[in-house]
Design a protein around this nucleic acid. Structure first.
Length: 593
RNA sequence: GCCAGAGUAGUUCAGUGGUAGAACAGUCGCUUCGUAAGCGAUAAACGUGAGUUCGAUUCUCACCUCUGGCUCCA
């Protein structure tokens, strides 16, 4: 344990030191470059530079790498020195010959927070840095790092600031670990849902139809439909009746809901008809509120739950679109729970339970919770909130529920939605990138806007509290995540084709047709492949289609009313009687194995 | 939207200032096969628009789309 921890710490130092060496190499090549920051990240490091436009392209990275290796071999020492603000300013200012304006900005900020300053000196390179670093570059394996990509990144992560050039690198203890990592990335590429879709025919996006507007192909939709069916049944069983609402609504609804004030940039421009403006819905909440208001609600009706596979359209900025993970049109597995203040906590816990149940079924592990709270200093986002107290209360209840469940969670100040604090469930995709896969949000905001109330025991109207939640945040994103996680090797119950039947030759074709019919009659998704290709080829094609069961039927099997069974993960299962096989597959489908 | 890169048959790739090839997939024949690619024939592409040029798929510019990153986000 300690050993592992030390290794990790040491790796941090190595990665951080590599970022300094990279800055050295960049400054040698571009003496006028200005330095931003150069921290470590998971598996590596980066450094931000202000460079002349177009000065550096990805093709220039090997040259920088080569120079870094030379520097490593010089056994440069990293020397830490404490310094004063005045001294630091002098070092990084124009008079010190550096003119490092971004560093000066950092120094100013550090001065405000009165944190002690230190600089690191390695070779002829000085950086403002708290460290820690390795003692000498002799601790770095020169073959265990690689500069991977160039990207633009806003100074301090604010898009109002200038964009700097960021160079990313990955680094490990040894060359072996590096090549292991690179292989993993290669593997990830094969399992990318867009690549899988190319091979398996899951979805498409057509320029002519529009960016970010996916079209589901038969195989993909079959899988999605199974997901829908599963979650529909689960929700109906758990007191979430489903509704269906239109994808348009008039302007006034979104004025009322706050969407036009807070969310307009993400909305498609309105459609004008009969002198009225209609917007495509970016969220389902207002429609559900409208259903809530349709009749007078008693405290006895609460908690009242409304679920919908709600199609929404959001104008996502062009650069963020990513297959099904980030689309402009998508379907949320949405639900709204209208509850009393007192009932809130229990409902949140129930929602957690449901999430966990679903995630267990899909064998999703390693997820964590992110509690997103408001930042009242952010006037633009949270400026119109009058009753900060209830927001704080909502935040508190969310936090308490989390603590009660004992789940691991992080806090994100300022990440709350415009209508309330929320908990997002975060996962890491095959690339190691963080994504939100599900969400639970508490809303004290809309009851007032929409006048959503119930009649309490005392006969008085009281505002409801609303929980917005989505288990499959969207079918699109969840589907993509699931495909990538399994690399297309779906569990039997989700497989769009569960069984492929292959007759060895025309002699057994009738037999194959007969068992195909039996499978279909038993609700098993089965297909058969024509015999004009060799058996080997048909097996290969079926394997590439990731079909769970491949059944080979020859003379022997015809005699025995059986099939020779091959499983996509377990391999050869030998000869099995057809009736037995049907039972086995039905059972495995039912048990979601 | 911003930064960087890329766009060649359905797909994955090769290639060229004198309009292009391969593999797989497709189609048509032949083959009827025992666990991951049988044989032959055949059809099929330079993202769009301008410019430079005798001539542009190739060079330049703009646009569109895609990939990675930043900001944003389910």
């Amino acid at each position: 344990m300690n050993y592992a921890k030390n290794m990790e710490k040491n790796m941090e130092k190595i990665r951080h030191s590599l970022s300094h060496l990279m800055a050295m190499a960049v400054l040698e090549k571009f003496p006028k470059a200005k330095l931003g920051i150069g921290p470590t990240i998971e598996n590596g490091f980066y450094y931000d530079f202000a460079l002349p436009a177009g000065a550096l392209a990805e093709a220039g990275l090997p040259e920088l790498e080569k120079r870094m290796r030379e520097l490593i071999k010089q056994n440069l020492e990293f020397k830490k020195e404490k310094t004063s603000f005045a001294e630091a300013k002098k070092i990084f200012s124009a008079s010190g010959g550096k003119n490092q304006s971004y560093k000066l900005e950092l120094i100013k900020e550090l001065q405000k927070s009165k944190k002690p300053l230190s600089i690191y000196n390695s070779g002829n390179f000085i950086d403002l840095c708290a460290g820690p670093h390795i003692k000498s570059t002799s601790e770095i394996d020169p073959d265990a790092f690689k500069l991977t990509k160039i990207a633009g990144a806003y100074w301090k992560g604010d898009e109002k600031n200038p964009m700097l050039t960021r160079i990313y690198g990955v680094a490990f203890e040894s060359k072996n670990e590096l090549s292991g990592y690179l292989k993993m990335m290669e593997q990830a590429e094969k399992c990318d849902h867009r690549n899988l879709s190319e091979r398996l025919g899951l979805f498409m996006i057509d320029e002519e139809i529009g960016r970010g507007l996916p079209l589901w192909l038969p195989r993909g939709y079959k899988i999605r439909h199974k997901l829908e069916e599963y979650i529909y049944n689960l929700e109906e069983e758990n007191g979430y009746p489903h509704v269906l609402t239109p994808i348009l609504a008039k302007e006034n609804l979104y004025k009322k809901s706050g969407h036009l004030a807070h969310y307009k940039e993400e909305m498609y421009n309105p459609i004008e008809i009969d002198e009225e403006k209609y917007y495509l819905k970016p969220m389902n909440c207002p429609h559900h509120h409208s259903i809530f208001k349709h009749t007078l609600r008693s405290y006895k009706d609460l908690p009242l739950r409304i679920a919908e596979f709600g199609q929404v359209y959001r104008y996502e900025r062009s650069g963020v679109l990513t297959g099904l993970i980030r689309a402009r049109g998508f379907t949320q597995n949405d639900a709204h729970i209208y509850t009393t203040e007192d009932g809130l906590s229990q409902e949140i816990i129930n929602v957690f339970k449901m999430h966990k149940k679903v995630f267990d079924v899909f064998k999703i592990e390693g997820y964590w919770y992110r509690l997103s709270l408001p930042d009242f200093k952010n006037k633009e986002k949270f400026g119109d909130i009058k009753n900060k107290k209830v927001w704080e209360q909502g935040s508190k209840i969310l936090k308490k529920s989390l603590e009660q469940t004992g789940y691991k969670f992080t806090e994100a100040i300022g990440e709350a939605s415009f209508y309330g604090p929320k908990i997002d469930i975060q996962i890491k995709n095959i690339w190691g990138k963080e994504e939100t896969i599900a969400t639970i949000q508490v809303d004290y905001y809309s009851a007032d806007k929409f006048n959503l109330y119930y009649i309490d025991k005392d006969g008085k109207e009281k505002p409801v509290v609303i929980i917005h939640r989505a288990i499959f945040g969207s079918f699109e994103r969840f589907f993509a995540f699931l495909m990538e996680k399994t690399c297309g090797n779906l569990p039997l119950w989700l497989a769009p084709v569960q069984v492929k039947i292959l007759a060895i030759s025309d002699k057994q074709a009738d037999y194959a047709k007969k068992i195909l019919k039996e499978f279909l009659e038993n609700g098993i998704e089965a297909e058969m492949a024509e015999t004009n290709e060799t058996l080997g080829k048909r097996i290969r094609e079926s394997e590439l289609q990731k079909i769970p069961y491949i059944l080979v039927a020859g003379d022997k099997e015809l005699q025995n009313n059986s099939a020779s069974v091959r499983h996509h993960i377990k391999g050869q299962l030998g000869e099995i009687k057809i009736e037995e096989l049907i039972e086995k597959i039905k059972r495995e489908t039912k048990d979601k194995l």
